Amino acid sequence: MKIMIVEDEPTIRELIRETLKKWGFETIVAEQFDQVLQLFVAENPHLVIMDINLPFFDGFYWCNQIRELSKVPILFLSSRSTPMDMVMSMNTGGDDFVQKPFHSDVLVAKINALLRRTYSYSEIQANVIEHDGVVLNLKDGNVFHKDRKAELTKTEFVILNILMRHKGTIVSRHKMMRGLWEDESFVDDNTLTVNMTRLRKKLGDLGKEDFISTRKGQGYTIL
């Protein structure tokens, strides 16, 4: 899903963008703060993150402008946290408020809650798979753990995707190779072993050395 970020502080803007990318969201960042509404109309995002203190016009103004056109959820994010600021954010059409400084996990939880309340399940099916702190981005094939990222090859991505979708169960080597063949990654038994070794090393570099377990004579599993 697409999220529009209207934030004047470059460091915070980049933090939000990277956090949302990690969770599989597409982001649009406002850079011309006198044309926020034009960007909104052009990009048609599913949610807007709006700072209050902005050049030209404040976030309350742009929230009012967006509300003239759309009921898209708007999440205010600001260091201004007086009761009047919170009241104003709601009165101008905001749906939630997060105070700076903020924890990225709280921000993502608020975003997901707003999306669940606004859209049907089929519209917000995740672009990521997450288990035990490991996040697999289904769009670009990258895998994340905390603040670290590893880029996977196509074969490594398919292997991890199969295992994470079947977490808690043992996936045989035969089933793994069949899944790879269906994805047009033609591998033999030795190639599977090589790719599994490389995938485990990348996960180990992220701090998840034992994420994939081998069950001798049976296959692989993620618990």
Rank of each mutant, 00 (worst) to 15 (best):
L47S: 08
V48C: 04
I49L: 15
I49Y: 01
D51C: 11
N53K: 14
L54C: 09
L54R: 05
L54I: 11
P55L: 08
P55M: 11
F56S: 13
D58F: 08
D58R: 05
F60N: 07
F60E: 00
Y61R: 06
Y61Q: 06
Y61V: 04
W62E: 08
N64M: 12
N64P: 06
Q65D: 11
I66C: 09
R67Q: 11
R67P: 14
R67V: 11
R67S: 09
L69F: 14
F76Q: 02
L77R: 00
S78F: 06
S81A: 12
P83F: 04
M84K: 14
D85I: 07
M86H: 05
S89D: 05
S89Y: 02
M90T: 12
M90L: 13
N91M: 10
N91G: 05
N91D: 14
T92G: 06
T92R: 10
G94R: 03
G94H: 07
D96V: 04
D96S: 14
F97K: 06
V98Y: 02
Q99E: 14
K100M: 12
F102H: 13
H103P: 03
S104Q: 15
D105I: 09
D105L: 11
V106P: 01
V106Q: 14
V108G: 02
A109N: 13
A109E: 13
A109D: 13
I111K: 04
N112S: 08
R116A: 04
S120R: 12
Y121V: 10
E123Y: 07
I124A: 04
Q125W: 01
A126H: 10
N127K: 10
I129S: 01
I129W: 01
E130F: 02
H131C: 02
H131W: 08
V134E: 07
V135E: 02
V135I: 15
V135M: 03
D140P: 03
G141F: 00
N142M: 09
V143W: 00
V143K: 00
F144W: 15
F144G: 00
K146P: 05
K146H: 12
R148F: 11
K149S: 08
K149F: 03
E151L: 09
K154S: 11
T155W: 00
E156R: 01
F157C: 00
L160Q: 03
